[in-house]
Amino acid sequence: MDLSAIPLLDQHAHNLLKPEAADRKPFRAAFTEGYHSDIIAHHAQHTFFFRRSLREIGQLLACEPTEQAILTRRSQLSLEQLTAQCFTGANMEGILIDDGLLPGDILPLDWHQQFVPVQRLLRIEMLAEDLVTKATSLDNFLAQYRAALDPPPADVVGLKSIIAYRTGLDVQPVSIDNARAKFAVWQADAQNGWPRMVDKKLLDFLLLHALELAAHHQLPVQFHTGFGDPDLDLRLANPLHLRPLLEDHRYRGASFVLLHASYPFAREAGYLASVYPHVYLDLSLAVPYLSVSGMQRTVRELLELAPFTKLMYASDAHQIPELYYLAAKWGRTVLGNALDEAVRDTDLTADEADEVAEAVLHGNARRLYRLNTV
């Protein structure tokens, strides 16, 4: 199926880097989840994703498909020109942006608005880190934290948690006394210039507070699941760890959005979406970072059991605008291939496949985030 005419609603992505920040990062760093200098210098260019992407970027920018030729062509364009070319090629109707990645190095949301409508996703760990130095006690901190989420800011359509990166998805209840003791240590560290929250009990405590408020306001909450950079313990990023939260009636009003196809736990994610009404999935990061066969296999695995009303397009694009284009190209391609296969297998009729494509590429996200106009 050719899905190029269907506009995309990207339900999870990140801000582009400021030019001065981008100048400090090698181009190929955007094509790997690794950040060790040896990975970037000697290995990131030897992946299916990177080699395939060079050809596709070269075609988009009308230059030779080599890293040096692409760098030369990029230097001839302003960031605005390059972004416009990539976003136009991606045919997007809107983006939901988590602006909690590299906050000091990124362009603001309104900069992105010149190309496409943008909605904000609020990263709750960053919110907590912003508030800790202003608080006089845990009670005072919680009052500020809850006030920032109840009601959610007018520009926020969903929350985002990176607890999988910090301590994993096996979230447990925490008593107020335990939280108070952990908060005192964290606040002391924050006053010394280190506000990053890494204590499991405190992370769990604050996530559960956020989930209660999200449930009250029927707000989607996005969770990093599956693979990522080396800060993450992949064993603890399996979405099956979320089952106690999914079973808890207090959080039923919040939709749990499992990001990144939960790769390599795509089947587990598909199962959760098939049995819990408030669980949703997206394609991001797995598309476009995997090989072509890997992307196709992962999308098929998500759709083996999960209702297609639960699957949404997303890119997880960040740093450079080319990632938006590459994710759009392969999101449409692998979904189209999966739907072609479903028609051949008699799982769907051709008309039903068209309906699924529209739902996955924008319809499901419009409904979930209550976006009447984008």
Rank of each mutant, 00 (worst) to 15 (best):
L8G: 04
E67L: 11
D110Y: 14
G270I: 09
V198D: 13
R250Y: 08
L8A: 03
S175V: 09
L368A: 06
H43G: 02
L211Q: 08
Y324M: 14
G331L: 11
R196I: 12
T373D: 00
K25F: 07
D354H: 13
L159W: 05
N337D: 15
L272F: 07
A41H: 02
Y165P: 04
A90K: 03
L339I: 13
L60V: 08
L259I: 03
A30V: 04
L169F: 05
H278E: 13
N15M: 09
H224W: 14
S75A: 14
L207M: 11
R332M: 01
P264L: 03
S315P: 01
Y280F: 15
R267N: 14
H216Y: 13
V374C: 08
S293M: 14
L211P: 12
Q172S: 13
D105Y: 10
R300W: 11
M295T: 00
A350P: 06
Y165D: 04
A306P: 10
F265L: 05
G363I: 05
S293A: 15
F183I: 09
M126C: 14
Q76F: 07
N140W: 07
V132T: 02
H241F: 15
Q114I: 01
V360S: 09
A184M: 09
A314D: 00
L138Y: 03
S78M: 06
L61K: 03
M197V: 07
S262W: 11
R367W: 04
W111C: 09
F227N: 12
P288W: 10
L3A: 11
L246E: 12
I162W: 06
G294Y: 10
H42T: 00
S274A: 14
Y313S: 08
H216I: 12
A190V: 07
I70K: 13
L208S: 09
E358M: 10
W330I: 07
N364A: 06
H43T: 01
L79C: 09
F50C: 04
G363E: 09
D38L: 00
A143P: 03
M1N: 11
A143F: 02
L60W: 09
E67M: 12
H241G: 06
S4M: 12
R24D: 13
L61V: 03
Y325E: 11
H42A: 05
L303C: 05
T309W: 00
E80N: 15
Q45C: 07
D204T: 01
D99Q: 05
Y35M: 01
S137R: 05
L101Y: 13
D229R: 12
L121T: 08
H209M: 11
I70W: 06
I97N: 04
I39C: 01
K329F: 03
S53P: 01
A210T: 06
D10T: 04
S137H: 04
R55Y: 13
R28P: 00
V156P: 02
E129I: 04
Q191V: 06
R196Y: 10
L16G: 04
R52S: 11
H217W: 14
L219N: 02
P151G: 05
S284W: 07
D177Y: 08
